[in-house]
Amino acid sequence: MSKLSRRFLLKGLLGAAIAALATALPRFAFGAWPEQAFRTKNVPDTLQALFGTASVITDTKGITLSVTDLAENGAVVPVTVTSTLPAVDSIALMVDKNPSTLAAQFLLAPGLKPFIKTNIKMAETSRVIALVRSEGKLYSTNKKVKVTLNGCSS
């Protein structure tokens, strides 16, 4: 093997190692806006786009989703998600019947409490789904919210 090709090989290996490291690092540090995920129209597609898997464990004990049963105004629906699951690094909010399913994703650094409170919009009566990633596994719970005034379009 010539000197040149050995150097070439080494460079290639180094490049591959860096690439592998970059993919192994948590998304947290480089969270690019997940355009594909925000275009999805149903929960399995959203999960696939965000996490590369649609397999999710329904967990009504480990996740608490606080949201009203009846939203007078779909433009402002307060939602609180808390969890007792360990090492939560992602909380996502989805609305089944919105024009796009995924409303928001929150990426949490270690040390953050598994707690998010925000206001979302709802187009019509639908399930609100809270999705939590804990130790690499996905858990979700949901609640039906009746909407009397559409908050997404006129």
Partner: peptide, 25 residues
């Protein structure tokens, strides 16, 4: 100076967005 939370939002977050979260330390 240390990143603790990143939020990725869509049009489905209400006007004048509100957010609350908490951390230890």
């Amino acid at each position: 100076g240390k990143l603790v939370l990143e939020a990725l939002w869509s049009i489905a977050i209400s006007k004048n967005p509100y957010l609350s979260f908490s951390f230890e330390g």
